[in-house]
Amino acid sequence: MQFDFAMVLAFAVAAVGFVLANLLLGALVRPKFPDPEKDVIYECGERPIGRAWFNFNPRFYIVALVFVIFEVEVALTIPVALVFREWVFKDMGWVALAEILVFIGILFVGLVWLWVRRDLEWIRRLDLRPGRQAADQSR
């Protein structure tokens, strides 16, 4: 077990070393001619307008939140799935099945909730809400 995770460390060192070694090697041979034109951020040949660190579509935050919740649920389901077969042969399969059903059930309720709230639509159309349509048409 310790060997396995020491191996992970060794691979991490190898991966970082691989990137670092090639960059260092490159630093010896590549040219360096700084130029104010090269320093400009690419924006289709125009001068960039402002910075890129601005507010972006809040949909991405919702996706991230949903991901965190679902992923934690999946991570908690994995141990149950892992011992499931063992439990089945110990004749405790129904207990394990109930547990899996509870886990997946919670996830499913969450998914239905998202679906009903239309958070799964990429482009959320506010005018589809009841009551909004008349207001939009009169505009």
């Binding site: 991966a15 090639n22 090697l25 590549r30 360096k32 001619f33 090269k38 320093d39 951020i41 960039p48």
Partner: peptide, 29 residues
């Protein structure tokens, strides 16, 4: 390997340099 390494002074230099390490580590691990 012999191309010039451009890091814009407008970017976040340290994060910019760190990104390839994460990507390669996620692959190699």
């Amino acid at each position: 390997l012999v191309k010039e390494d451009l890091i814009s002074s407008a970017s976040d230099r340290w994060l910019f340099r760190a990104a390839p390490y994460f990507v390669v580590a996620g692959f190699a691990l």
